[in-house]
Computed example of a mutant assay.
Amino acid sequence: MEKILINDIVPIIVIMALGYIFGKLSYFDDDQRQGLNKLVLNVALPAALFISIVKATRSELGADATLTAIGFVGIIVMFMLCYYLCRLMFKHSIQEAAVCALIAGSPTIGFLGFAVLDPIYGDSVSTNLVIAIISIVVNAVTIPIGMYLINLGQAKDRERLSAAATTTAKGDVTVKAPAPKDDVAVDPAKDAKADKTVEVMVSKSSNMGKKKNQNLAAIINALKQPVCWAPLLAIVLVLIGVRVPDSFAPTFDLIAKANSGVAVLAAGLALATVKFSFSWETLWNTFYRLILTPAAFLGVGLLCGMGHDITKLSMLVMAVALPPAFSGIIISSRYNIYVKEGASTTAVSTVAFAVTCLLWIWLVPLCA
């Protein structure tokens, strides 16, 4: 366990702190910071997701039906529950709640999965199966869902603002268009700068005279993002049995290796741009990620009869008890949505994982 803390958790904290210091010293300007985020979100992260998923096989997914079912259904349910609770409890917009779910509702399985589970449980078929299942759901299902919700929320905001502006222009009634939330607010007097720092994932076409199918448009725009179609392509290849030659792996691995380090550094830079928020929301997100989610998986696993295989149940619980997915904070920083809460949640959860990791290793065998 000491090796895990020193080799895996401490480097994350140090690199994030380094990014925070760089941000406070203005070592990177806004354009450079956005460039780092774009590199991770559009190049390195899609490559990392693709190569991690295509290494799985259909036989792995079918090796344990109970584990696969709990992994797929559980991750999606906890993701959507996080989304709805964020909207209900903290009154956030659709896109803010979506980013919250990408952070507090998703574990960083691609980055810490093997690093944490292998030293504890060994490099076995069961370990690879658990990591593969959780990785596929997080990367190929919840990220596209989150991107879809972000696009849908942005589209609804634009339609509402457009309708208010049209009504005001006609002189029927004077309406003050509601300003977006703090994380996505844009000063009209600073449009030139806003175009660089507050990019939205949806097309900027006008809604004048047209009633668009917002759901379809949001889905299409989300699927255009490399971070969505890359993992989806990978899972399709796995399901139809197409194996990517091993000789291609180094090509993807080379750029994918930049993902984790740059993502953590960018998270620190994002934290430096906002006031750190050690609020009730940050504490709730940390509790949801590190305590509530693994507790739910532990309970469901016991109800589904996984108590006879304590090791596999413990691996499943540990896989979903990891800190927030760094893809969520990158999306947050890249599009300036839920930045303060997201960066604070990532920082606090990463530090707290050093304690909760030991808690679940001790608690799962006791409950089983």
Rank of each mutant, 00 (worst) to 15 (best):
P107C: 10
I94R: 05
S106P: 03
G110F: 12
M78L: 15
I76T: 12
M80A: 12
M78C: 13
V77Y: 03
A65N: 13
D64Y: 01
V77N: 00
L102D: 08
S93D: 13
L85N: 04
T66A: 09
T68D: 03
G113N: 10
C86Y: 01
L88G: 06
F79L: 11
T66P: 01
I76V: 15
F90I: 05
V99T: 01
A97H: 00
I103P: 02
K91A: 08
V77E: 00
C86N: 05
M80R: 04
V73L: 09
M89P: 00
E96L: 01
G105V: 07
I70L: 14
L112D: 07
P107Y: 12
L85W: 04
G71T: 10
C82A: 14
F79W: 11
K91H: 09
M78F: 12
I70C: 01
A97P: 00
F114W: 13
H92I: 03
L102G: 03
V99A: 01
A115W: 05
C82E: 01
H92K: 14
I75Q: 13
V99K: 00
Q95L: 10
F90A: 05
G74I: 11
L112A: 14
G71Y: 04
P107T: 10
T108F: 11
F72H: 05
A63Q: 08
A101V: 12
F111C: 06
F90Y: 15
L88P: 03
Y84L: 13
R87F: 03
F72R: 06
C82P: 02
T108R: 06
I109E: 14
M78N: 07
T68G: 02
F72V: 15
I109M: 15
L81E: 07
A101E: 11
F111M: 14
S93A: 14
I94W: 07
A98T: 04
A115Q: 15
K91M: 03
L85C: 11
L117D: 03
F90K: 05
L81F: 12
A115L: 14
A97C: 08
A63K: 10
F111D: 05
F111W: 14
F72Y: 11
G113K: 05
A69R: 11
C100G: 03
L88T: 11
L102A: 08
C100H: 10
A63H: 08
I76C: 11
G113D: 12
V73C: 06
T68I: 02
E96N: 05
A63S: 15
